[in-house]
Each structure stands twice: as C-alpha cells, then as structure tokens.
Design a protein around this nucleic acid. Sequence first.
DNA 1: TCTGGGGTCCTAGGACCC
DNA 2: TCTGGGGTCCTAGGACCC
Length: 427
Amino acid sequence: MKAIVDCNNFYCSCERLFKPHLDHKPVVVLSNNDGCIISRSDEAKALGVEMAGPYFKAKPLIEKHDVAVFSSNYNLYGDLSWRVMETLRSLVGKQNVEVYSVDEAFVDLSIFPPEELQAIAMQIRETVEQWTGIKVSVGVAPTKVLAKAANCLAKKHKHKTNCVVVLDTKDKIERALAATPVGDIWGVGGRYAHKLQEEWFITDALQLSKMSEEFARTHLGGVVGARLIRELKGIPSKEMEDELVSKKMIATTRMFGSPVDNINDIKEAVATYTSRAAEKLRRQHSAARIISVFVVTNEQDHSLGFNRGGTISTYTTLPVATSFTNELIKPAVTLVDELFKEGKLYKKAGVMLSGIVPDASIQGNLFLPETKNCERRLMDMIDNVNFSQRNDVLKFAASGTTRDWKMRQELRSPRYTTRWEELYEVK
DNA sequence: TCTGGGGTCCTAGGACCC
DNA sequence: TCTGGGGTCCTAGGACCC
C-alpha cells in the first residue's frame, strides 16, 4: 500500500505559521510578479476566490472581505517543505519516502501490516502537524493514482475524515471512485476530461476504471493512459521512484516587472537567469551541453489561453558540457542577439539548460587543467557565499546592477527561517 | 519497369503534473 | 492597465545507417 501526504493549502499555511492572527481568516498567496493567485486558504476558497485566477480580477473581492495577500516567498516555503519531508523520513524510513513536489510526498507503507494502516496514517498526520505546524492530508491505497483519489476525498470532507482516507477494500475503492469526477483523477487533465465526457459519456472515475487498457491506449495518450487505467483497477503501474534522480532539464524564467524594449535589459535578465540555472545545475552535480533562451513579447494573447503566441526561442549546443556560470552566460547572452527585434516590447525571458550529464569537474579532476579546478573552487565559493549571506552578494557583471527589469514582489513576508536578519522575533 | 527491411537518434509538440 | 514558474513522459516523423 502507498500513501500520498499532501500539505493543505501549503503556501498559505506557511504564511500563517508566523502570523497566528490570520488563523481562520482568508489568506491568498500570489505567483511571482504578483500575477495570479496560487494558494488559497479554505476561507478564501469559500469566498469564491479562484485558483490561478489573475490577482487584479480578484482584487475587488479580496479587498471587500479583507483577505490577507502575500507575494510568494520561496525561501520560506522551501525550508518548511524540507522540515515536513524530514519528519516523514524519520517516521517511515528515508528509503520509503519519495518527495513528489514541494508540498507532497509518496510514502511506501508496505512495511506495515494492513490492519495498522489507518492508525499509521493518522500518526503521520498528527506528527507532521506537531513538529512543523503544517497540516497535511493523507490518502492510502494500493496504487498511487488511487492514493491521490483518497487524498482528494480526505481534503474534500475534512471534518468527516479527519484528513485521512484509507482505501483498503474493493468496496471502499469503488465507492471512492464513484465519488470522483473524471477531471479530478490524477493524470486526467482538462483536455482528456472534456473528451471523456463528450465522446464517451464517462463522468466519474469508477466508469473510467471499467474501460479496457486498449481503450486508454488509443484514446488517452498511449501507454500513459494504459498505466492510468491499470492504476485505477488497483494494479500498481507507477512505482515508487528513486529519490536522487537528477533533473533532465533546468529552467529559470521570469516575467519582467514591466515590459522592456531595451536589449541590454534583456541581456542582464538572461545573464541573471543563467546564473540561477547554473546554481541549480551545480547543486545536483551536473553539467549541461544545451542552452536555450526564449523571450516573450507582449503580443502574447491571453484570451487564447495562457502561454499562446509571442514566444520565440533558440538554442545552442556547447562543445563540452559545463556547469560554470561564466561559460554558460556568454552563449546565453549571444542568443539574445538572435532573438531581439528593435521596436518590440518584451515581458518575459527564460533560460533552459538540457543535455545534462554528471559534472566531470567536481572535486578536482586529474584530467582537467589546473585552471579548470580553480574555476570549480570559485563556483563552490560563490554558491556558498550566496547561500549563507544574501542572494546574489556575488554575481557576474553581465547580470547588471540596476535591474530595472526585475519582478514585482511587493507583498513578500520576511524569510523567517532562512535569513538571520529576518528571523521571527518573540517579544 | 522495377525501388527492402530493420534499426537508431533527434526534434517538435502534445498531454499531463504541482 | 494588470494573467507563474517550474518540471515529466510519450509520440510521430525525419534523417541517417547498414
């Protein structure tokens, strides 16, 4: 049996942790650039504030009900996420936890006897809350997809379930599936949900679970769909994954605070994003060969859907994979020349690193010239200083110093747990 | 006039996730 | 006026190989 442990309204819960007066009050957290709403407390949901809706549209409602609003504070969320995951690891063993996202982890419970699952799940929920202050929901079932469905129900009926649902019999599974609309199934997105309902009159998960694998193979995206159906039928087809897999792609992309028409601003932004991406690369001890850069003009039309149109991109392949910021910045900035057109307004840019391989320069490498090994030590030093001090105390000149293009983040709360100067004070 | 069969690698794009 | 920022896997089709 597997469990999915999912933090409730994670970003909002993090904000509340240090502002107890906001308990039971509506809270929302905004995306970067204060663009849209990416986390809502239960109270905010009840008011009708929409998920992923643009902030400016929800503003009247938010002001009317005095909703507390925060810019996203990823330092804080990242640290609290780590605490939650550490708690899980200490409860069930490191090797049985698969961190799935910042606020979710799968937990392999096969080491526990079936009759104890309910109690174990409850203990996980209570311990995480006690140790970190973060409330979680736990769904337990034979497969990941069913566990996600269980979790969804646990959240939907908080009071009845105490945020824990265990699906350990055929009967419980069927009832749970019947109560799950197809669109709520993990792995069925908007497109497939629409198709299933319109073309096949399949509206709930129980109906879908009775379809054949062949059906899924032809109508739900091939082997992905087939696996989904198997999981719904209770046959594990998405196994627990190894924790320490390196990312195959690393991206850093941002909207600008306001549109930019100057190529140098874009180059500075791209250099900064490249530094970020290179840090992520070094953190997982990788190097990259392919670097792509894209820019988005403000011709992008949101009425057509989120990311449609206006994006142009290009890439270059380096002769040798590298994780050195300076070696990545140069080609990245050169790519901007290819993309930039005078007279247009740009609202976003991004850098993506791929062609990722293990870093050969780590720990001093006999086969590299000594200058390379020095550069490696320089990179480590920069990473250490930037991590322990303030972000970007040390940066490359190409990143610029004025940063006219940087994003808006007006409502960010202090980084209580990761910056000394912003520590929470008890009076 | 007739023009195989099998394989690999790469890329673009579509679907999904949080 | 103002709409994030990451990721994953899979498929189809083209280039190329023998």
